[in-house]
Every structure is written in structure tokens, then in C-alpha cells.
Amino acid sequence: MSKVLILAEHNGTKINQSTAKVLTAAKQLKADTIDVVLFGNDSGLATQVAALAGVNAVKYVQCNDNHDQLAASIAPTIADLGKDYSHIFGPSTTFGKDVMPRVAALLEVNQLSDVMEIIDANTFKRPIYAGNAIITVKTDTPQIVATVRTASFAADKSTDGSASVTESTLSTAAEHTTFVELSTGNSDRPDLQTASKVISGGRGVGSEENFQIVYDLADKIGAATGASRAAVDAGYVPNDMQVGQTGKIIAPDLYMCFGISGAIQHLTGIKDAGTIVAINKDGDAPIFEVADVGLVGDLFKIIPEMMEKL
């Protein structure tokens, strides 16, 4: 008799696809009820969630300022609502990772991080050691708090839902924490986390300027762009492009990478990709061990040739 509460994520105007992925996971619990809690200051967001089939009720909590993204502000409300549920699920995104452990601590339970498979309502699989081992874990606490590894679940695509929406006002805003600003890459390209195609580059690309040809190829085929940690650390690209253990975990249909050697921490971020294509001038690079298609060569010759032939 599972009753699930999902924490929705959004960017102020649009519900993040992670919400629909968590919904897919919640449905696998064969739950009796799935409700969604949403913090924001645009009631249109609640309408978007209500359209997802299988959602029973949307609990829209109005926040008058930036408190909708602050873990310390929203966790007490989630924990309080969560007492009526058997499962409280959030996405394993930076937003979910920030807030869900606070919810778990308030409910005095350990959290299940990065759930990748649901076996039954109490048994789950999750990765440890950057995905080098998978553990099967069991817990039977009255509330199970989990973050869901979004790359492991397809987004629920339904749009014919008719959930009820109830509105309330945030009463747990933290005084000690203030949001100042969010600076984003402001790219017109598809979102890295949800794109069906991703082109990425590593240290082998060599410089910020050189990354232009990676962007050009991405634009040519309508792909999002990503990068290895080495490329981010070297300052070639901003941090929001990082793919891997501590960056984004993605599962596009096509992942094509240039000049990435394939450190284990990077491979963790792409192992659910449909087709991995690797181009590297070092034929012994570990990336070729996981690539579906590999090509040894100079990316500065190969990308222009691809541009010409596509």
C-alpha cells in the first residue's frame, strides 16, 4: 500500500523533466496514490504537473521570494507533508541532492541516494564507488526518502492527467539563508540533461577557442554539448557542461565525445547512453573500451570532415 510524494523541480517557468522521470519510478512502486509537492511562485507550474497522468494531487506551495529553491526553507514543509506518505521521492539532481537529505534527517531516516532500480516497495538498487559496484538495499522505515537517478528512468510522457491542485503558502522560510543569484550558460542548445544527442569534448580539444568546432558540430546535428572534468578544470568550458560522477549523469540516444580519454568518473556519467561514439588520437584511451563505435584520429581533421558530410 504505497503512497508516494514527489518533489517537483522547475526553473521558475517550466517543470524540469526530472519530475516526469521520478514519476516513472514512483509508478513502478505500484503505488495507490502519487501526489506531487511543488514550491514556486507561478501557479502555471502546478497546471503543468497536474497534466501528468497518474498524479492524484498537486500540492502547490506558494513562495513569495527565492525560497522555492532553498533546501533549508522547503525541507520542513516536505517532511511535514511526508508523514502521510510511505515514500518521498526527489530527483537526483543538484536540487534534489541538496534538499532530500534534510527531509530524511527531519524524519529520522537514512536516505536512499541515486535509486537506479526498484525491486519492490522496500528493495532498491543503487550505485556505489562511481558505479563500479551496484548494491541491493532494503529498508522498511515508515517513510522511505530517496533520490531517483534520473538517467535510469524514462520520462513519463503523459499529458492527459487531471490531478487536483491545492494551494498553500510557505510558512517555513529560513531566515539564515539568502539566495543572491544564479548565473547560467544561457545556451540556445538543447538541455544537456535531457537532450537525445550530446556532443562533448575533453582536454584534447585544447582551449576555449578550440571548443568552437565542438559547438559547431553540435549545432549541425541539434545536439547538446558536454565536457569532461579535465576540460572544465582547464577553463575551456563552464561547470554546467561537466558530465560524470560529480557532474551530470546523462542517458542520451547518442553520445559522441572528442578528445576524452575516459576516466572512470566520466564513464559513470554516460554508461546509460544508447550509442557511445569516441574519437581520440590515442588508440589506447580507456574510452574505447566502452565506446560502441571508436575512431582513432585527430579531432581537428575529423570534425571538419563530419561537418562537410552531414
Partner: peptide, 23 residues
């Protein structure tokens, strides 16, 4: 309550891919 770990397993390896010579 601690979460009980039932078992550890190695991740599913990806199928070995192909190497190509040309674009």
C-alpha cells in the same frame, strides 16, 4: 534505522563496440 545492504554486484558491462578507420 540503518539501511540493510543485501548484496553487491558488478555493473553490467557494455557490449564491446567496433573500431572504424574513416569518417
Amino acid at each position: 534505522q540503518a539501511i540493510e545492504v543485501l548484496k553487491h554486484e558488478a555493473p553490467q558491462p557494455r557490449q564491446k563496440g567496433v573500431m572504424v578507420e574513416t569518417v
